[in-house]
């Protein structure tokens, strides 16, 4: 099995196991602020909300433990309140009230984004963390996500099941260590290849990659342990093969991938990406194909050093290439084995 040590070290390097203390503190303060101040803010607009009725829970990678290191810490925390959405159909206003409730300290910059209220933290002029607060309303036994930007014409309460989604992913990932690693590797590949992307919806979303990894995961173990290189190569290869391609004159002009959320609203995770531009799907497919090509080469070459070089093309410098073994047997036999 090739590159076992390098994959293990790389995984340790990219993994975030727990929130850092400053993040935890900021999150806890923010949650307390939401509980303390959101009811008053809503009350000033004639909406009755008890502090005890606010439900705040984890969403995203921190919930199912697939977080990876990134330049800006990204945390998703869901806020759910009981609300008659028929009486208050304008999600922009409710999100605005949440923003107003928490936007009173200089340390935070609060903005309304399409699916959430975004709370960013800056230090020395640079953002070091943001907490996304998707806002849910519980109405007649159903849960709805507040969608829409502050001044957008399109806004709605979209039926949702955030806890069902959490549960579905936890059920799929928990207890499967290799799958969890593969998800993190794929997310790291995405971050590496889309590091300079500035276009909205161009970057494949984490939740989409996570579901694709779960769907097409190929477990590979050997007597020496889990073979992450081959598992990753096979999984990414299977994901690539699931694209539907449209070609014109032999050139790919459209590459669609679809993954429906298994809970309400059962929408396609990649719909926004597809609607934004055909080129985004093509870019996703091409980059994925390149990664598969490199990983396949890594699987096929004999030398660990060469295999490492191929994998480094997928993940960047943080993946360490093992040194070239000129005469490995001779080198091993020259290692000191006696101890006085």
């Amino acid at each position: 099995m090739k590159l076992k040590k390098q994959f293990a070290e790389f995984y340790d390097e990219i993994t975030i196991k727990d929130e850092s203390e400053p993040l935890r503190e900021k999150r806890e303060i923010l949650q307390k602020d939401i509980e303390d101040r959101f009811p008053d803010e809503l009350a000033s607009h004639g909406i009755d909300l008890k502090k005890s009725d606010i439900e705040i829970f984890d969403q995203g990678s921190y919930k199912y433990n697939t977080t990876i290191k990134s330049n800006v810490i990204d945390r998703d925390v869901a806020v759910k309140i009981p609300l008659d959405i028929n009486q208050y159909p304008d999600t922009r206003k409710i999100k605005g009230y949440l923003r107003d409730a928490i936007d009173y300290v200089a340390a935070r910059t609060v903005n309304i984004k399409e699916p959430c209220v975004n709370v960013a933290y800056f230090e020395n002029g640079e953002e070091w963390m943001h907490i996304d607060l998707p806002l849910y309303a519980e109405c007649d036994g159903k849960v709805y996500l507040a969608r829409g930007r502050e001044f957008a014409d399109n806004y709605s309460w979209e039926i949702a099941d955030p806890k069902g989604l959490n549960q579905d992913l936890c059920d799929k990932i928990n207890g499967n260590a290799q799958l969890r690693r593969i998800i993190r590797y794929i997310k790291k590949w995405r971050n590496e290849k889309y590091a300079n992307s500035t276009l909205d919806h161009e970057v494949p979303p984490s939740i989409g990659l996570t579901y694709l990894a779960c769907d097409y995961f190929q477990e590979v173990t050997t007597p020496e342990g889990d073979d992450d290189l081959t598992a990753l190569q096979q999984t990414m290869s299977a994901i690539r093969d699931s694209f539907i391609l449209t070609k014109e004159n032999g050139i790919i002009v459209k590459a669609d991938i679809t993954r429906y959320i298994p809970v309400e609203p059962f929408t396609d995770i990649f719909a926004t990406m597809k609607e934004s531009s055909d080129s985004y799907g093509v870019k996703f497919y091409n980059r994925l194909s390149k990664a598969v090509e490199n990983l396949t080469n890594a699987v096929n070459v004999e030398s660990e050093h060469d295999a490492g070089n191929y994998v480094q093309k997928v993940f960047g410098e943080e993946f360490e290439v093992p040194p070239k073994q000129v005469s490995s047997a001779a080198t091993v036999s020259k290692k000191e084995q006696n101890f006085g």
Partner: peptide
């Protein structure tokens, strides 16, 4: 003891 990027000490220690 309180790095933002990573949790280097346990929560109990903190």
């Amino acid at each position: 003891v309180c790095g933002k990027d990573l949790r280097r000490i346990s929560h109990e220690t903190y």
